[in-house]
């Protein structure tokens, strides 16, 4: 039905989903994504923005290669490794924080020095704890550390900062900027927070309600990550207006 393949080094992410359906509990097929086409240049930071339940997580899992049950085509960047932060921390409850992070590494790198990463994410004093003992914020940070520890070529983030303390979220966003700038990893962030997307990304994809389609996309001028609060607000306002127009247009047609 689809042909997934991995391109050579530093290739863009190319994803086309003609249709993605789920069987609902009463046996009828529900179309969650339709005619979606998305291209993200190597080393750039894209954001998928859309309302809750529109199909963002579904798209992200398809991009991760975790869900091959769709009509379309996927080409992932790099021959290399995928780092992913799921919407839930998804740590192994029976392994310590440090083991959880190191288990994601290939066997020959299981003992590499991660002190810097642990320091950046403020995990240093929690490494020996079990996930059940962590606050959600700490568990999220451990999940982010796991995705970064493997030095991914391709990074997928599913609403990683939702339901965190705003202060913690701000810090983690800054850390994300620092980490992605240092490594130039191709990143796709899923969020329903427009300001967050505007602050972090250089390419925005706005999704419609279910079935998800791209309403319109926008490239933001660099530098990303360092945009001032005022600039973020200004761009967000402009985007909001354009989204409203796009929704109106798609409603008419």
């Amino acid at each position: 039905m689809n042909d997934a393949q991995t391109a050579g080094d530093a290739a863009p992410l190319e994803l086309r989903i003609d249709a993605k359906r789920f069987l609902s509990s009463d046996g009828t097929a529900v179309e969650v994504v339709r005619n979606l086409e998305l291209r993200l240049e190597a080393g750039s930071f894209g954001a998928l923005i859309g309302p809750s339940g529109c199909g963002k997580t579904t798209i992200l899992k398809i991009a991760a290669g975790l869900d091959a049950d769709f009509q379309g085509r996927l080409r992932t960047p790099g021959a290399g490794r995928l780092g992913i932060v799921f919407q839930e921390p998804r740590l192994l409850p029976w392994r310590t924080v440090e083991d959880n992070i190191r288990l994601a590494l290939p066997a020959d790198q299981a003992n590499v020095d991660l002190a810097d990463l642990f320091g950046t994410l403020g995990l240093g004093s929690h490494l020996a704890r079990y996930p059940g003992e962590l606050s959600l914020g700490l568990a999220r940070r451990a999940a982010i550390a796991r995705a970064f520890a493997i030095r991914p070529d391709f990074l997928l983030l599913d609403e990683p900062f939702v339901s965190l303390d705003e202060a913690v979220a701000i810090r983690l966003r800054n850390e994300l900027v620092a980490l992605t700038t240092a490594t130039r990893v191709t990143t796709l962030l899923v969020t329903h927070d427009l300001a967050e997307a505007v602050q972090l990304a250089d390419r925005l994809f706005f999704l419609s309600d279910r079935p998800a389609q791209i309403l319109f996309e926008k490239t933001l001028p660099p530098p990303r990550g360092t945009r001032s609060k005022d600039l973020v607000t200004e761009i967000s306002e402009e985007m909001r207006a354009q989204v409203a127009q796009a929704v109106a247009r798609s409603g008419q047609s």
Binding site: A64, L66, I84, R90, L92, L103
Partner: peptide, 21 residues
């Protein structure tokens, strides 16, 4: 199944999956 998916995403080997998952 969520942990299974995580193990798949991070390319756990069969042995790692058995022992840790």
């Amino acid at each position: 199944p969520e942990i299974d998916e995580m193990a798949k995403a991070f390319q756990f080997t069969a042995f790692k999956r058995l022992r840790h998952v």
